[in-house]
Amino acid sequence: MPGVVRAKNRPVREIHYGDRVFAGILKIPAAGLALLLLSIAYFLYRAASPVIVKHGWAFLTSSTWDPVRDVYGALPVIYGTVVSSFIAIVIATPLSVGVALFLTEIAPRRTGRVFGFLVEMLAAIPSVVYGLWGIFVLAPWLRTSVEPFFKTWLGFLPFFSGPPYGVGMLAAGIILAVMITPTISSIAREVFSAIPLQQREAALGIGATRWEMMRLAVLQSSRRGLTGAVILGLGRALGETMAVTMIIGNRHEVSLSLFAPGSTMASIIANEYAEATTDTHVAALVEVGLVLFAVTFVINSIARLFLSRSGNR
């Protein structure tokens, strides 16, 4: 920004009295955001404290989740979250980088704009609509074509054993991949367009083909930014609730098979809030939320670190 008078990074010093008041007033909602973040952590902690006191760290490592006997262990849902997000990342990363490369390096300007808009639309569709589509379109397709295919060819692996239900870990991972592709690809696009044109011209100038140019001039120098983009996508996948709840099958067991139903930290909260009649059950669900909050906070901070160092954001 063409700042003429102000020194860089120095707060504005006000001459008018009214301006000092104005600046003070504007600080209230701004600082309120920090307060809001702190109070989210505090209230979650307070509501979860009965279970935190009772179970301690064992909450994270125990795999029994039994509201009837008031025993709560979050291991199955943590496992489900990790596996479904991992599937999502594995599918979404190459896809998003491909999309971003196509949009920034190959597509003519107008085509790029149209396709860019379409990819953004993918991010705008409400989660519950993804879930609806998942139940009635994706899951039947997985059950009748994809999962039997994997079973026939890779059925000897524990990941592809068991009956193909359609709903389950694999379905959740796929729908998460669809949902985070626009997130990752839009940041990848920003990272790519921040690379100076000269770098591309230099590669082309010494005789590289366009793909070689993309590899040498674009992908090589944006590794850090791409890592940040993927981590940000991971953060989004970890906390995605509705679509996953509707399609993962909601069963609290650790199973190696990707066809088996499971549940994630977010989905167990959405799925059990209605049945949670005892105070400890509610507190256990809130503690799952607290863990999810902490995890996404850390993941997103790391992503931010990567992205700010690479000169983006």
Partner: peptide, 29 residues
Amino acid sequence: EYGRGRLASVVRFCADMLASIPSIIIGLF
């Protein structure tokens, strides 16, 4: 308009974090 200095970077960080918290956490809060 006043986005310089330490408070502003704290606010930016908080806004970023708030935007990336899963929405179900806000519901729990």
